[in-house]
């Protein structure tokens, strides 16, 4: 496990001077993941907040090689980079070891980039895909995505007089990645650098396709004060709203909060859930708690079920 002191001596992958919102979680995730790499990294990013805010010509915040292609294809694009890397290496035309990392938001990963991600993972490319998951289309102004949690208000599934935000439970993309039989899949959040960095280190040490789904509080879309980006990540973990766990070759390892807090403690911190606390929405709030509990119980059961399995 690398220390912060050691991390701080590594080359900085991302400069300041980008145009992400103050307190944005995405660049924190980028830094914590990329600093964990011992080898040089090559980054591919989907269109989204991260890409548009870090590369406004002629200013790029990336100090590492960086490629942006389009919205839905960062996994496929990264698979092409990986193919060229292997081809040139095999031919003796490139002699270094690199890590290829693709970033995508939840829109570019859960929704429009889902097929590209699935294909790249199934083909077994040696790359790490990191979803910076802020649970909606934040770049275009907080629209609902497949990652948006039940009850959250977004601009395309807003809370109104007769509707209370998104009606559906979010897609469990991490489990879909597990079903791809990847050697390494993990969930993480902001606010726990040691956990995320360790997971990134594990991913980099694993050959083949890797996927890490990182919950990224978005002050704009979630509605909270910018200094709370790390705090909210931890609260999501402590309430089991966003369990942090890893699956290594099918074997689950779940990080348990010391005391599992009620999900309302997480929800009440954010504007996007404010309507859930109005009179009349008690049942919806109870449904969300029940959903979180059921998901958590399933996760623990999977951990127990795979405990004896050889990794």
């Amino acid at each position: 496990m690398v220390t912060l002191k050691e991390l701080s001596t590594r080359p900085e992958p991302l400069t300041g001077g980008h145009r992400m919102c103050p307190g944005c979680g995405a660049p924190i995730i980028v830094r914590q993941v990329l600093l964990a790499a011992k080898d040089p990294v090559v980054v591919v990013s989907a269109t989204g907040c991260l890409e548009v805010s870090t590369t406004i010509f002629p200013f790029t915040a990336w100090k590492v090689p960086f490629l942006h292609n389009a919205f839905e294809n960062s996994a496929a694009t990264a698979s092409g980079v990986e193919a060229a890397y292997h081809s040139l290496k095999r031919q003796g035309r490139f002699d270094k070891n690199i890590q290829i990392v693709a970033f995508g938001g939840d829109g570019g990963t859960y929704d429009i980039g889902f097929q590209s991600l699935s294909g790249a993972m199934e083909r077994g490319h040696d790359l790490l895909y990191v979803c910076y998951n802020n649970e909606a289309y934040m770049n275009t102004g907080v629209q609902r995505s497949g990652a948006t949690p039940k009850g959250a208000t977004t601009t395309t599934a807003p809370a109104g007089k007769v509707s209370q935000g998104k009606l559906q439970w979010r897609k469990d993309l991490t489990e879909i990645m597990v079903a791809h039989e990847l050697p390494y899949v993990a969930q993480a959040t902001t606010g726990n650098w040691a956990d995320l960095t360790k997971k990134a280190e594990k991913a980099f040490a694993t050959r083949g396709p890797k996927f890490i789904n990182v919950l990224q509080p978005c002050r704009l879309g979630w509605g909270y004060r910018p200094e709370d980006t790390a705090v909210l990540g931890r609260l999501a973990f402590e309430t089991c709203f966003w369990p942090i766990y890893e699956v290594e070759n099918g074997v689950y390892k779940v990080t348990k909060p010391r005391d599992k807090k009620p999900v309302a403690e997480f929800l009440k911190t954010q504007e996007r859930f404010r309507h859930l606390f109005k009179p009349g929405n008690e049942q919806l709030l109870a449904d969300i708690q029940q959903g979180v509990d059921a998901h958590w119980a399933k996760l623990l059961a999977k951990e127990a079920m795979t405990a004896g399995v050889k990794k």
Partner: peptide, 16 residues
Amino acid sequence: ESEHSAMSACVGASAA
């Protein structure tokens, strides 16, 4: 898994 990804991968490989 698709032509969209074919051209996307070509872009990645050519950029590399």
